[in-house]
Amino acid sequence: MTVKILEFERPIVELERQIQELKRVSATPEMSLEITRLERQAAQIQRERFASLSPWELCQLAKHPDRPYTLDYFGELLTEFTELRGDRRFADDPAIVGGLARFEGQPIVALGHQKGRNTKENLYRNFGMARPEGYRKAQRLMELADRFGLPVLCLIDTTGAYPGIGAEERGQSEAIATSLELMMRLRVPTISLVIGEGGSGGALAIGVTDRILMLEHAVYSVISPRGCASILWKDAEAERTAAEQLRMTAHDLSQLGICDEIIPEAVGGAHRGLTVTAAAIQESLRRHFAALRALTVEERLAQRYGKYRRMGHLEVVSESV
């Protein structure tokens, strides 16, 4: 595994390297005490540093090249995953994967954006940026879920829907719009979880669900900080400031009433502990699916409508002009 190290990860990685080195050279009792002390210190530093990451640092972490992707989580959370491909209209878009699987024994439909680990994979996956075919495949799978009464799980991890000529020709906006409307009508329980980047409409297209969950270090925004900076600041380099202003961290979305639950990641981020992170996700999904299953279809649909109907911030003046 190639581990890319971000700036704020460096001191911790350095400390870990020293510990490894010490372990290798010596085996005296005093040294092993020292090693334990250092390990505890490293964990402490890591916990403190990661608790105070800036929005910009979180943006980096959310798209860390070693961060687990959708299929990594499927491997941990699901059994009997069977990939279902194609939109039955034009093509199969590998930027979105989905299929039938079991979650804790129960059959569900699971889907999500899928990024690539290397250049070759990324060319195939289009960096997890879906074209209309991807959203239409998602629609097909969700309709299938609805027909057979299977709960839907969507993992969100995309920079955004792909802005290309072909994507526009084949109706990128229509594909996203139709997904939004369709997800409002699904009679089955639906949960979305932002595992990395939640990039605007391309993310929301599989995110209009009964519950919106976010991993601790995930981000979710109406526009990328870079895009926002180049429009409002006329300077793409202002992206750090834009990242702060956009209020796009899991904590922000929770405060704004959009995110229903923040799921803790392994210390140092999900890429430093896939199993621990997946276990936390599993516990949360179990709880939310159980609560949603306890509702009648009518209750679920009414609650879902109410959830989105209330979103927004309005001021009302008494004297209308």
Partner: peptide, 10 residues
């Protein structure tokens, strides 16, 4: 921000 994005859903 995200509140604008959610207007698409609403």
């Amino acid at each position: 921000g995200i509140l604008s994005l959610m207007q698409l859903a609403k």
